[in-house]
C-alpha cells in the first residue's frame, strides 16, 4: 500500500510549526500505524533528514504513551484502540493521512507530534491516591467488596492517561481523566475515606492547570481507547458537589 502523509513538524516548544508532506510506499497491510511511521523515519534518516518525533512505548495499547490525532480522530480510526494498535488495513490504499499532535493548551507541543502531558501527573498528585502507608494495612480479604463495585472500579481504572479525552474535547476538558480516577476509588471502600477531599483537590488542580469545562458532548467517551463511560463524570460531579455542599 502507498500513502501520502501530512505531518505536523515543529522544532521545539517555542518554534512555529507547520505541515510537511511525505510519501511512503510498499507498506504491508499488516503493518501497524507506528511501524509505518518507523519506516518513514528510517527513510528520512537515510536521506539525512530528521525523523518525525512521536511518543510510543509498549505498542500493546496499555502504557498510554502513544498519542496522535490522525485524520481528525484521536488515536486514529477505529474505537477502543490506541494509535499503536491501528493497522494499515484500516486505511485505503493511496490515501492522504493527516497526522497532528494533541492540541490542548494544557498539553504544549515539545517537538513534532510529542506533547507534554505532565498536567495529568499533577492532577493525580493533587489527590489521586489512597493515603496508606506501606506495610500497615489489613488483610486483603478483610473487607469484602461487591463484585459489581469492583468491576465498576476496574472499568474506570482502565484509564491509561493517554490524554485523548482532553485532546478530543472541543473544550480541552480533562473531566473524563479526572473522573476515571475519582470514580474508581469512590467505588471502593478503601477509597471512600478520602473521597470528598480527593474530588475537590483534583477538580481544583484540573481547573488551575487550564483545562476546559465539561459540556457533556461525550466526545471523550467516543475516543477513549479504553471506552471509559461518561457515567464516571456524573459520579465525579456528584462526589464534588456533595463534598462542596458539606463544607
Amino acid at each position: 500500500m502507498n500513502f501520502t502523509l501530512k505531518i505536523w513538524r515543529q522544532k521545539d516548544a517555542k518554534s512555529k510549526g507547520g505541515f510537511e508532506t511525505y510519501k511512503v510506499s510498499d507498506i504491508s497491510e499488516d503493518t501497524s500505524f507506528l511501524e509505518m511511521l518507523d519506516i518513514l523515519n528510517n527513510d528520512l534518516i537515510h536521506a539525512g533528514k530528521e525523523p518525525v518525533a512521536f511518543d510510543h512505548d509498549c505498542r500493546e495499547g496499555i502504557c498510554g504513551m502513544c498519542s496522535l490525532h490522525i485524520d481528525g480522530k484521536a488515536h486514529g480510526p477505529g474505537q477502543g484502540a490506541t494509535t499503536c494498535q491501528i493497522y494499515m488495513r484500516k486505511f485505503k490504499d493511496g490515501a492522504t493521512i493527516t497526522i497532528e499532535p494533541w492540541r490542548s493548551a494544557a498539553f504544549p507541543v515539545i517537538k513534532d507530534l510529542v506533547v507534554n502531558r505532565g498536567a495529568y501527573d499533577q492532577i493525580l498528585q493533587a489527590g489521586g491516591f489512597i493515603s496508606v502507608r506501606t506495610n500497615s494495612v489489613p488483610d486483603a480479604n478483610a473487607i469484602p467488596i461487591p463484585k459489581a463495585d469492583a468491576d465498576e472500579a476496574m472499568d474506570a481504572a482502565a484509564c491509561i492517561g493517554c490524554g485523548a479525552c482532553a485532546a478530543t474535547c472541543k473544550n480541552g476538558s480533562a473531566m473524563l481523566f479526572v473522573a476515571a480516577r475519582v470514580s474508581s476509588l469512590a467505588k471502593l471502600p478503601q477509597g471512600r475515606v478520602e473521597g470528598a477531599r480527593r474530588a475537590k483537590a483534583m477538580v481544583a488542580k484540573m481547573d488551575e492547570l487550564g483545562f476546559g469545562n465539561c459540556t457533556n458532548t461525550g466526545a471523550c467517551q467516543a475516543e477513549c481507547p479504553k471506552s471509559i463511560s461518561i457515567a464516571h463524570i456524573a459520579r465525579l460531579n456528584r462526589e464534588f458537589l456533595s463534598a462542596k455542599f458539606e463544607d
Binding site: R103, A105, F107, G210, G212, G218
Partner: peptide
C-alpha cells in the same frame, strides 16, 4: 474558558465523533 483551554493552535482536520 473552554476556548482558551483548547489552545491557540487548532486541529487542521476534525470529524464528528
Amino acid at each position: 474558558n473552554n476556548y482558551r483551554a483548547r489552545g491557540s493552535q487548532r486541529y487542521a482536520v476534525t470529524v464528528q465523533e
